[in-house]
Design a protein around this nucleic acid. Sequence first.
DNA 1: GCAAATTAATGATTTATTCAAG
DNA 2: CTTGAATAAATCATTAATTTGC
Lengths: 214, 214
Amino acid sequence: MGTSMKVHQFARGFWEQEPSLSLGCKRLRPLAPKFNTNSDSITPFDLKSFIKPDSGPRKLGSDHDHKRDSPQVETHPGGTRWNPTQEQIGILEMLYRGGMRTPNAQQIEQITAQLGRYGKIEGKNVFYWFQNHKARERQKQKRNSLGLSHSPRSTQASTITTTITLDSRGEVEREGDSPYKRKSRSWVLESLELEESNEGDGTLELFPLHPEGR
Amino acid sequence: MGTSMKVHQFARGFWEQEPSLSLGCKRLRPLAPKFNTNSDSITPFDLKSFIKPDSGPRKLGSDHDHKRDSPQVETHPGGTRWNPTQEQIGILEMLYRGGMRTPNAQQIEQITAQLGRYGKIEGKNVFYWFQNHKARERQKQKRNSLGLSHSPRSTQASTITTTITLDSRGEVEREGDSPYKRKSRSWVLESLELEESNEGDGTLELFPLHPEGR
DNA sequence: GCAAATTAATGATTTATTCAAG
DNA sequence: CTTGAATAAATCATTAATTTGC
Protein backbone atom coordinates (compact mmCIF):
# COMPACT_ATOMS: atom_id res chain seq x y z
CA MET A 1 0.00 0.00 0.00
CA GLY A 2 1.79 3.10 0.13
CA THR A 3 3.41 4.37 -2.90
CA SER A 4 2.99 1.69 -5.27
CA MET A 5 3.55 2.88 -8.65
CA LYS A 6 3.04 0.92 -11.63
CA VAL A 7 2.15 1.78 -15.01
CA HIS A 8 0.57 0.44 -17.84
CA GLN A 9 0.91 2.18 -20.96
CA PHE A 10 0.39 2.03 -24.48
CA ALA A 11 2.31 4.38 -26.44
CA ARG A 12 5.67 4.81 -27.63
CA GLY A 13 7.88 7.51 -26.62
CA PHE A 14 9.10 10.30 -28.59
CA TRP A 15 12.44 11.62 -28.73
CA GLU A 16 12.57 14.15 -31.30
CA GLN A 17 15.41 16.30 -31.92
CA GLU A 18 14.52 19.76 -32.45
CA PRO A 19 17.17 21.42 -34.38
CA SER A 20 16.28 24.90 -33.75
CA LEU A 21 13.78 25.06 -31.05
CA SER A 22 16.35 27.00 -29.26
CA LEU A 23 15.35 30.01 -27.44
CA GLY A 24 16.91 29.41 -24.22
CA CYS A 25 13.63 29.43 -22.56
CA LYS A 26 15.31 30.13 -19.39
CA ARG A 27 13.30 31.41 -16.64
CA LEU A 28 13.26 35.04 -16.84
CA ARG A 29 13.43 35.46 -13.22
CA PRO A 30 15.73 32.94 -11.91
CA LEU A 31 16.55 35.02 -9.00
CA ALA A 32 14.56 33.02 -6.71
CA PRO A 33 16.36 31.95 -3.66
CA LYS A 34 15.03 28.57 -4.07
CA PHE A 35 17.54 26.04 -3.36
CA ASN A 36 16.99 22.48 -3.23
CA THR A 37 17.08 21.63 0.32
CA ASN A 38 18.34 18.23 -0.14
CA SER A 39 21.83 18.01 -1.22
CA ASP A 40 22.67 14.61 -0.21
CA SER A 41 23.84 12.11 -2.63
CA ILE A 42 22.23 13.47 -5.61
CA THR A 43 23.28 11.51 -8.49
CA PRO A 44 24.33 13.62 -11.34
CA PHE A 45 21.19 12.85 -13.09
CA ASP A 46 21.77 9.89 -15.15
CA LEU A 47 20.33 10.65 -18.44
CA LYS A 48 20.40 7.15 -19.56
CA SER A 49 17.81 6.21 -17.15
CA PHE A 50 15.46 8.33 -19.07
CA ILE A 51 15.93 6.63 -22.23
CA LYS A 52 12.97 4.91 -23.31
CA PRO A 53 13.70 1.30 -22.98
CA ASP A 54 11.10 0.75 -25.49
CA SER A 55 9.98 -2.16 -23.58
CA GLY A 56 6.52 -1.95 -22.61
CA PRO A 57 4.11 -0.67 -25.04
CA ARG A 58 1.02 -2.39 -24.02
CA LYS A 59 -2.25 -2.69 -25.46
CA LEU A 60 -5.14 -1.72 -23.54
CA GLY A 61 -8.74 -2.21 -23.89
CA SER A 62 -9.32 -5.83 -24.12
CA ASP A 63 -6.75 -7.41 -22.08
CA HIS A 64 -6.22 -10.85 -23.13
CA ASP A 65 -4.37 -13.28 -21.14
CA HIS A 66 -1.02 -11.83 -21.26
CA LYS A 67 0.42 -13.87 -18.59
CA ARG A 68 3.78 -12.58 -19.13
CA ASP A 69 3.12 -9.65 -21.16
CA SER A 70 4.28 -10.49 -24.51
CA PRO A 71 6.11 -7.57 -25.85
CA GLN A 72 3.31 -6.88 -28.09
CA VAL A 73 3.97 -3.99 -30.19
CA GLU A 74 1.65 -1.21 -30.14
CA THR A 75 -0.33 -2.35 -33.02
CA HIS A 76 -3.86 -1.50 -32.51
CA PRO A 77 -5.06 -3.77 -29.90
CA GLY A 78 -8.10 -5.68 -30.56
CA GLY A 79 -11.29 -4.15 -29.54
CA THR A 80 -9.90 -0.79 -29.05
CA ARG A 81 -12.77 1.35 -28.36
CA TRP A 82 -15.70 1.14 -26.16
CA ASN A 83 -18.87 0.12 -27.72
CA PRO A 84 -21.71 1.17 -25.54
CA THR A 85 -24.83 -0.84 -25.26
CA GLN A 86 -28.25 0.60 -25.41
CA GLU A 87 -28.72 0.41 -21.72
CA GLN A 88 -25.51 2.17 -21.11
CA ILE A 89 -26.34 4.96 -23.46
CA GLY A 90 -29.77 5.24 -22.04
CA ILE A 91 -28.53 5.59 -18.58
CA LEU A 92 -25.90 8.03 -19.54
CA GLU A 93 -28.39 10.19 -21.32
CA MET A 94 -30.71 9.97 -18.45
CA LEU A 95 -28.01 11.21 -16.20
CA TYR A 96 -27.12 13.90 -18.60
CA ARG A 97 -30.63 15.12 -18.87
CA GLY A 98 -30.87 14.90 -15.17
CA GLY A 99 -28.29 17.57 -15.02
CA MET A 100 -25.09 15.75 -14.70
CA ARG A 101 -22.44 17.33 -16.71
CA THR A 102 -19.05 16.24 -15.71
CA PRO A 103 -19.11 13.68 -13.00
CA ASN A 104 -16.39 13.63 -10.52
CA ALA A 105 -14.26 10.75 -9.58
CA GLN A 106 -16.67 9.11 -7.29
CA GLN A 107 -19.50 9.50 -9.63
CA ILE A 108 -17.58 8.09 -12.47
CA GLU A 109 -16.57 5.25 -10.35
CA GLN A 110 -20.11 4.46 -9.56
CA ILE A 111 -21.44 5.02 -12.97
CA THR A 112 -18.83 2.77 -14.34
CA ALA A 113 -19.67 0.17 -11.84
CA GLN A 114 -23.30 0.32 -12.67
CA LEU A 115 -22.89 0.42 -16.37
CA GLY A 116 -20.50 -2.42 -16.16
CA ARG A 117 -23.43 -4.59 -15.54
CA TYR A 118 -24.59 -4.04 -19.03
CA GLY A 119 -21.37 -4.45 -20.76
CA LYS A 120 -17.73 -3.84 -20.70
CA ILE A 121 -16.87 -0.35 -19.83
CA GLU A 122 -14.17 1.63 -18.22
CA GLY A 123 -14.16 4.80 -16.29
CA LYS A 124 -12.57 6.77 -19.00
CA ASN A 125 -15.35 5.82 -21.33
CA VAL A 126 -17.80 7.44 -19.02
CA PHE A 127 -15.63 10.41 -18.69
CA TYR A 128 -15.24 10.82 -22.40
CA TRP A 129 -18.83 10.25 -23.04
CA PHE A 130 -19.79 13.16 -20.91
CA GLN A 131 -17.19 15.31 -22.45
CA ASN A 132 -18.28 14.54 -25.92
CA HIS A 133 -21.91 14.58 -25.27
CA LYS A 134 -21.77 17.93 -23.64
CA ALA A 135 -19.74 19.40 -26.40
CA ARG A 136 -21.90 17.96 -29.09
CA GLU A 137 -25.12 18.91 -27.56
CA ARG A 138 -23.82 22.37 -27.31
CA GLN A 139 -22.70 22.59 -30.85
CA LYS A 140 -25.89 21.06 -32.02
CA GLN A 141 -27.78 23.67 -30.19
CA LYS A 142 -25.70 26.41 -31.59
CA ARG A 143 -26.14 25.15 -35.04
CA ASN A 144 -29.81 25.05 -34.51
CA SER A 145 -30.19 28.49 -33.23
CA LEU A 146 -28.27 29.74 -36.17
CA GLY A 147 -29.75 27.68 -38.88
CA LEU A 148 -33.16 27.88 -37.48
CA SER A 149 -33.94 31.03 -39.34
CA HIS A 150 -32.64 29.53 -42.44
CA SER A 151 -33.59 26.07 -43.16
CA PRO A 152 -35.65 24.33 -40.61
CA ARG A 153 -34.17 21.26 -41.96
CA SER A 154 -32.60 19.70 -39.07
CA THR A 155 -35.30 18.10 -37.17
CA GLN A 156 -33.85 18.79 -33.91
CA ALA A 157 -37.16 19.83 -32.61
CA SER A 158 -37.98 19.96 -29.03
CA THR A 159 -35.24 19.62 -26.66
CA ILE A 160 -36.08 16.96 -24.31
CA THR A 161 -36.04 18.70 -21.06
CA THR A 162 -37.22 15.75 -19.26
CA THR A 163 -35.87 16.99 -16.06
CA ILE A 164 -35.65 13.77 -14.32
CA THR A 165 -36.72 13.75 -10.82
CA LEU A 166 -33.62 12.58 -9.32
CA ASP A 167 -33.14 14.36 -6.15
CA SER A 168 -30.63 16.67 -7.47
CA ARG A 169 -31.40 19.10 -4.84
CA GLY A 170 -30.45 22.33 -6.27
CA GLU A 171 -27.41 20.92 -7.73
CA VAL A 172 -28.63 20.26 -11.13
CA GLU A 173 -26.73 22.39 -13.32
CA ARG A 174 -28.25 23.42 -16.43
CA GLU A 175 -26.44 23.32 -19.57
CA GLY A 176 -25.52 26.85 -19.98
CA ASP A 177 -26.29 28.66 -16.88
CA SER A 178 -23.41 28.01 -14.69
CA PRO A 179 -21.51 31.23 -14.56
CA TYR A 180 -18.59 29.18 -14.01
CA LYS A 181 -17.36 27.22 -11.28
CA ARG A 182 -14.21 25.48 -11.00
CA LYS A 183 -13.50 22.48 -9.15
CA SER A 184 -10.24 20.89 -8.96
CA ARG A 185 -9.49 18.04 -11.12
CA SER A 186 -9.28 14.69 -9.70
CA TRP A 187 -7.37 11.84 -10.91
CA VAL A 188 -8.70 8.49 -10.74
CA LEU A 189 -7.35 5.11 -10.90
CA GLU A 190 -9.24 3.19 -13.35
CA SER A 191 -8.54 -0.35 -12.92
CA LEU A 192 -6.93 -3.32 -14.08
CA GLU A 193 -6.24 -6.72 -13.22
CA LEU A 194 -3.53 -6.72 -10.77
CA GLU A 195 -2.84 -10.21 -10.15
CA GLU A 196 0.57 -9.09 -10.48
CA SER A 197 3.28 -10.60 -8.76
CA ASN A 198 4.79 -9.02 -5.85
CA GLU A 199 6.39 -5.75 -5.98
CA GLY A 200 3.57 -3.98 -7.47
CA ASP A 201 3.52 -5.17 -10.89
CA GLY A 202 -0.11 -4.71 -11.22
CA THR A 203 -1.01 -2.85 -14.21
CA LEU A 204 -3.16 0.03 -13.57
CA GLU A 205 -5.09 2.23 -15.68
CA LEU A 206 -6.48 5.50 -14.86
CA PHE A 207 -8.37 8.33 -16.08
CA PRO A 208 -8.57 11.92 -15.23
CA LEU A 209 -11.56 13.47 -13.93
CA HIS A 210 -12.61 16.82 -14.82
CA PRO A 211 -15.13 18.31 -12.66
CA GLU A 212 -16.53 20.58 -15.16
CA GLY A 213 -16.38 24.13 -15.81
CA ARG A 214 -17.54 27.17 -17.45
CA MET B 1 -9.64 -10.76 -19.35
CA GLY B 2 -9.75 -11.37 -15.83
CA THR B 3 -12.17 -8.67 -16.03
CA SER B 4 -11.50 -7.87 -12.59
CA MET B 5 -11.87 -4.27 -12.70
CA LYS B 6 -10.18 -3.11 -9.75
CA VAL B 7 -11.34 0.05 -8.72
CA HIS B 8 -10.52 3.39 -8.48
CA GLN B 9 -9.27 5.40 -5.87
CA PHE B 10 -8.91 8.92 -6.31
CA ALA B 11 -7.58 11.95 -4.88
CA ARG B 12 -9.42 15.06 -4.59
CA GLY B 13 -7.79 18.05 -5.83
CA PHE B 14 -6.45 20.62 -3.66
CA TRP B 15 -8.85 23.07 -2.44
CA GLU B 16 -7.65 26.30 -1.57
CA GLN B 17 -7.46 26.75 2.00
CA GLU B 18 -5.58 29.41 3.68
CA PRO B 19 -3.70 31.23 1.07
CA SER B 20 -1.13 32.43 3.38
CA LEU B 21 -1.04 30.18 6.26
CA SER B 22 1.13 27.26 6.10
CA LEU B 23 0.87 24.44 8.35
CA GLY B 24 0.87 20.84 7.94
CA CYS B 25 -2.66 20.06 7.57
CA LYS B 26 -3.42 16.53 7.53
CA ARG B 27 -4.72 15.36 4.35
CA LEU B 28 -8.32 14.92 4.70
CA ARG B 29 -10.40 13.06 2.39
CA PRO B 30 -13.38 14.76 1.09
CA LEU B 31 -15.24 11.96 2.42
CA ALA B 32 -17.52 11.17 -0.22
CA PRO B 33 -20.89 9.84 0.07
CA LYS B 34 -19.63 6.70 -1.26
CA PHE B 35 -21.82 4.27 0.30
CA ASN B 36 -21.00 0.72 0.30
CA THR B 37 -20.75 -0.55 -3.12
CA ASN B 38 -20.80 -4.01 -1.87
CA SER B 39 -24.47 -4.02 -2.20
CA ASP B 40 -23.78 -6.38 -4.94
CA SER B 41 -24.11 -5.51 -8.42
CA ILE B 42 -27.71 -6.22 -8.30
CA THR B 43 -28.73 -2.82 -7.51
CA PRO B 44 -31.06 -1.56 -10.13
CA PHE B 45 -28.86 1.30 -10.76
CA ASP B 46 -29.76 3.79 -8.25
CA LEU B 47 -29.93 7.08 -9.89
CA LYS B 48 -29.60 8.97 -6.76
CA SER B 49 -26.17 7.77 -6.24
CA PHE B 50 -25.09 9.60 -9.24
CA ILE B 51 -26.31 12.90 -8.42
CA LYS B 52 -23.70 15.26 -7.71
CA PRO B 53 -23.27 14.90 -4.05
CA ASP B 54 -21.43 18.07 -3.91
CA SER B 55 -17.98 16.86 -3.55
CA GLY B 56 -16.55 20.12 -4.13
CA PRO B 57 -18.18 22.50 -6.40
CA ARG B 58 -15.91 25.30 -6.08
CA LYS B 59 -17.80 28.32 -6.74
CA LEU B 60 -15.36 30.94 -6.96
CA GLY B 61 -15.15 33.93 -9.01
CA SER B 62 -14.44 36.90 -6.94
CA ASP B 63 -15.15 35.03 -3.91
CA HIS B 64 -12.54 35.08 -1.30
CA ASP B 65 -11.47 32.73 1.26
CA HIS B 66 -13.98 31.51 3.60
CA LYS B 67 -12.62 30.57 6.82
CA ARG B 68 -14.68 27.60 7.24
CA ASP B 69 -12.45 24.70 7.22
CA SER B 70 -14.67 22.13 5.87
CA PRO B 71 -13.52 18.63 6.35
CA GLN B 72 -12.75 18.41 2.76
CA VAL B 73 -9.80 20.52 2.60
CA GLU B 74 -7.42 17.89 1.67
CA THR B 75 -4.57 20.14 1.25
CA HIS B 76 -1.48 18.39 0.52
CA PRO B 77 0.98 18.62 3.23
CA GLY B 78 3.48 20.53 1.33
CA GLY B 79 1.38 22.98 -0.38
CA THR B 80 -0.78 23.19 -3.23
CA ARG B 81 1.08 23.41 -6.30
CA TRP B 82 4.31 22.07 -7.42
CA ASN B 83 7.14 24.41 -7.17
CA PRO B 84 9.99 23.23 -9.23
CA THR B 85 13.53 23.69 -8.18
CA GLN B 86 16.17 24.94 -10.47
CA GLU B 87 17.58 21.55 -10.99
CA GLN B 88 14.25 20.17 -11.90
CA ILE B 89 13.62 22.90 -14.37
CA GLY B 90 17.04 22.52 -15.78
CA ILE B 91 16.61 18.88 -16.38
CA LEU B 92 13.22 19.29 -17.85
CA GLU B 93 14.46 21.91 -20.23
CA MET B 94 17.33 19.76 -21.14
CA LEU B 95 15.02 16.97 -21.98
CA TYR B 96 12.81 19.28 -23.88
CA ARG B 97 15.62 20.63 -25.92
CA GLY B 98 16.79 17.13 -26.38
CA GLY B 99 13.60 16.60 -28.22
CA MET B 100 11.25 15.21 -25.73
CA ARG B 101 7.83 16.55 -26.17
CA THR B 102 5.26 14.46 -24.53
CA PRO B 103 6.78 11.68 -22.60
CA ASN B 104 4.92 8.50 -22.26
CA ALA B 105 4.10 6.70 -19.12
CA GLN B 106 7.39 5.08 -18.57
CA GLN B 107 9.27 8.16 -19.34
CA ILE B 108 7.26 10.20 -16.99
CA GLU B 109 7.70 7.65 -14.39
CA GLN B 110 11.42 7.80 -14.73
CA ILE B 111 11.64 11.49 -15.01
CA THR B 112 9.59 11.85 -11.94
CA ALA B 113 11.78 9.45 -10.13
CA GLN B 114 14.87 11.32 -11.08
CA LEU B 115 13.52 14.72 -10.41
CA GLY B 116 12.26 13.54 -7.12
CA ARG B 117 15.79 13.68 -5.96
CA TYR B 118 15.79 17.37 -6.14
CA GLY B 119 12.50 18.01 -4.58
CA LYS B 120 8.99 16.93 -4.23
CA ILE B 121 7.35 16.20 -7.48
CA GLU B 122 4.66 14.09 -8.93
CA GLY B 123 4.16 12.55 -12.27
CA LYS B 124 1.42 14.85 -13.24
CA ASN B 125 3.68 17.79 -12.66
CA VAL B 126 6.00 16.46 -15.27
CA PHE B 127 3.18 15.84 -17.58
CA TYR B 128 1.80 19.30 -17.15
CA TRP B 129 5.15 20.86 -17.46
CA PHE B 130 5.64 19.40 -20.86
CA GLN B 131 2.22 20.39 -21.94
CA ASN B 132 2.63 23.92 -20.81
CA HIS B 133 6.13 24.32 -21.97
CA LYS B 134 5.37 23.08 -25.37
CA ALA B 135 2.39 25.29 -25.72
CA ARG B 136 4.16 28.33 -24.42
CA GLU B 137 7.21 27.87 -26.49
CA ARG B 138 4.98 27.67 -29.42
CA GLN B 139 3.10 30.78 -28.67
CA LYS B 140 6.25 32.61 -27.83
CA GLN B 141 7.65 31.69 -31.14
CA LYS B 142 4.58 32.78 -32.92
CA ARG B 143 4.55 36.05 -31.16
CA ASN B 144 8.12 36.57 -32.07
CA SER B 145 7.74 35.75 -35.66
CA LEU B 146 4.94 38.21 -35.87
CA GLY B 147 6.52 41.03 -34.05
CA LEU B 148 9.97 40.55 -35.38
CA SER B 149 9.12 39.43 -38.78
CA HIS B 150 11.61 41.81 -40.18
CA SER B 151 14.57 41.42 -38.03
CA PRO B 152 16.82 38.82 -39.50
CA ARG B 153 18.51 38.67 -36.24
CA SER B 154 18.26 35.22 -34.94
CA THR B 155 19.16 35.73 -31.42
CA GLN B 156 19.77 32.17 -31.00
CA ALA B 157 23.10 31.88 -32.49
CA SER B 158 24.25 28.52 -31.51
CA THR B 159 21.87 25.82 -30.99
CA ILE B 160 22.79 24.06 -27.96
CA THR B 161 23.76 20.94 -29.64
CA THR B 162 24.22 19.33 -26.40
CA THR B 163 22.91 16.30 -28.01
CA ILE B 164 22.18 14.52 -24.94
CA THR B 165 23.49 11.11 -25.00
CA LEU B 166 20.29 9.40 -24.74
CA ASP B 167 20.35 6.67 -27.19
CA SER B 168 17.30 7.61 -28.98
CA ARG B 169 17.83 4.93 -31.42
CA GLY B 170 15.91 5.72 -34.46
CA GLU B 171 13.06 6.97 -32.54
CA VAL B 172 13.56 10.55 -33.18
CA GLU B 173 10.61 12.15 -34.61
CA ARG B 174 10.38 15.60 -35.78
CA GLU B 175 8.21 18.19 -34.29
CA GLY B 176 6.24 19.50 -37.10
CA ASP B 177 6.89 17.26 -39.93
CA SER B 178 5.31 14.20 -38.64
CA PRO B 179 2.43 13.62 -40.94
CA TYR B 180 0.55 12.71 -37.95
CA LYS B 181 0.52 9.93 -35.69
CA ARG B 182 -1.87 9.10 -33.10
CA LYS B 183 -1.37 6.89 -30.30
CA SER B 184 -3.73 6.15 -27.63
CA ARG B 185 -3.54 7.94 -24.44
CA SER B 186 -2.16 6.18 -21.53
CA TRP B 187 -2.99 6.69 -18.02
CA VAL B 188 -0.60 6.18 -15.34
CA LEU B 189 -0.81 5.70 -11.72
CA GLU B 190 1.24 8.22 -10.05
CA SER B 191 1.57 7.07 -6.58
CA LEU B 192 0.68 8.16 -3.27
CA GLU B 193 1.20 7.63 0.20
CA LEU B 194 -2.06 6.51 1.34
CA GLU B 195 -2.53 6.27 4.91
CA GLU B 196 -5.61 7.02 6.66
CA SER B 197 -7.86 4.24 5.97
CA ASN B 198 -10.89 6.19 5.65
CA GLU B 199 -13.20 3.51 4.75
CA GLY B 200 -10.58 2.03 2.71
CA ASP B 201 -10.03 4.66 0.27
CA GLY B 202 -6.48 5.08 -0.31
CA THR B 203 -5.88 8.25 -2.01
CA LEU B 204 -4.16 7.82 -5.19
CA GLU B 205 -3.12 10.27 -7.63
CA LEU B 206 -2.50 9.80 -11.17
CA PHE B 207 -1.83 11.46 -14.31
CA PRO B 208 -2.72 10.86 -17.80
CA LEU B 209 -0.20 10.28 -20.34
CA HIS B 210 -0.47 11.52 -23.76
CA PRO B 211 1.89 10.13 -26.16
CA GLU B 212 1.81 13.15 -28.29
CA GLY B 213 0.31 13.73 -31.48
CA ARG B 214 -0.29 15.56 -34.48
C1' DG C 1 15.66 46.50 5.30
C1' DC C 2 11.16 44.58 5.65
C1' DA C 3 6.36 43.62 4.31
C1' DA C 4 2.14 44.75 1.96
C1' DA C 5 0.73 45.57 -2.84
C1' DT C 6 1.54 44.72 -7.83
C1' DT C 7 2.95 42.37 -11.65
C1' DA C 8 4.79 38.51 -14.33
C1' DA C 9 5.28 33.42 -14.75
C1' DT C 10 3.57 29.41 -14.80
C1' DG C 11 1.17 25.31 -12.73
C1' DA C 12 -3.37 23.19 -13.24
C1' DT C 13 -8.10 22.80 -15.57
C1' DT C 14 -11.44 23.26 -18.93
C1' DT C 15 -13.00 23.76 -23.61
C1' DA C 16 -12.60 23.39 -28.45
C1' DT C 17 -10.81 20.92 -32.29
C1' DT C 18 -9.20 17.05 -34.61
C1' DC C 19 -8.55 12.18 -35.84
C1' DA C 20 -10.09 7.99 -37.02
C1' DA C 21 -12.70 3.36 -35.81
C1' DG C 22 -16.96 1.13 -36.86
C1' DC D 1 -21.98 9.54 -40.65
C1' DT D 2 -21.64 8.86 -35.88
C1' DT D 3 -18.88 9.15 -31.97
C1' DG D 4 -15.07 7.42 -28.93
C1' DA D 5 -10.50 9.01 -28.23
C1' DA D 6 -6.82 12.27 -28.11
C1' DT D 7 -4.51 16.71 -28.47
C1' DA D 8 -3.99 21.58 -28.48
C1' DA D 9 -5.69 26.06 -27.22
C1' DA D 10 -7.68 28.90 -23.91
C1' DT D 11 -8.46 29.88 -19.39
C1' DC D 12 -8.24 29.97 -14.48
C1' DA D 13 -5.56 30.28 -10.22
C1' DT D 14 -1.47 30.55 -7.43
C1' DT D 15 3.02 31.29 -6.63
C1' DA D 16 7.44 33.99 -7.36
C1' DA D 17 9.49 38.03 -8.52
C1' DT D 18 9.31 42.99 -8.32
C1' DT D 19 7.92 47.31 -6.77
C1' DT D 20 6.61 50.62 -3.41
C1' DG D 21 6.03 52.93 1.05
C1' DC D 22 7.47 53.15 5.30
